[in-house]
Design a protein around this nucleic acid. Structure first.
Length: 189
DNA sequence: TGCACGATCTCG
DNA sequence: GAGATCGTGCAT
């Protein structure tokens, strides 16, 4: 197991999104318990020109963290109840991030944060040095496929997800922004 | 200071 | 198919 370093996070969001499929999301709780889950699904958000990116309209208090150098966590509340975990990537000043959409045993971005007890108190956490939240790679090669992004119909000309689309759409690699990357076949417990 | 709405999930 | 539930960003 190798902990991901600054170098791993310095790449653009699409590259990182692909590289993070199959990596391990690691979380140490206050009582010392360490949980490790393999990442099964990611999604890239690519800067101010990506209309689905929170930083699309520029730097605000919320999106400020996305402008940091790659390697920290951006966590926010969605729909008033779901904590969403993103990994900031790229150089300082470029707001790119990868949304972690699923891990083994928890499909869906809201579920995985609940499972691993990740919330906004970990916003801006330094994933390179933190002992509460970090990522590791075991070097395993994971087969994965690309699919249209989910739940943001306004940012793409493709239909909003229906349950099967993610798993059925393969090789949709021509979309300019924000592809999601999933393990194929999906890993489950 | 108010209001619309969202990178979701669960239950019916 | 709709409701839960609240921070954010923009309008007033």
């Amino acid at each position: 197991m190798r902990r991901l370093t600054t170098k791993d996070y310095a790449v653009d969001a699409v590259t990182a999104a692909k590289a993070l499929v199959g990596a391990w999301l690691c979380r140490r709780l206050e009582d010392g318990t360490v949980m490790r889950r393999r990442i099964t699904e990611t999604e890239a958000y690519c800067g101010e020109e990506d209309t689905a990116c929170h930083a699309h309209k520029g730097r605000t208090a919320r999106t400020d963290v996305m402008y940091s150098p790659g390697g920290c966590a951006y966590i926010y509340l969605c729909y008033g109840m779901h904590e969403m975990l993103n990994v900031v990537t790229g150089p300082e000043g470029r707001p790119e991030a990868v949304l972690i959409r699923g891990v083994e045993g928890a499909e869906g971005p809201g579920r995985l944060t609940k499972l691993l007890k990740i919330d906004r108190s970990l916003n801006r956490e330094d994933l390179v040095r933190s002992n509460r939240l970090w990522l590791e790679s075991d070097g395993a090669r994971v087969k994965f496929t690309a699919a249209p992004r989910i739940g943001i119909a306004y940012a793409s000309n493709i239909p909003v997800r229906d349950k099967n689309v993610v798993w059925m759409c393969r090789s949709r690699c021509f979309f300019p922004f924000g592809l999601i990357w999933v393990c194929f076949p999906p890993m489950r417990f």
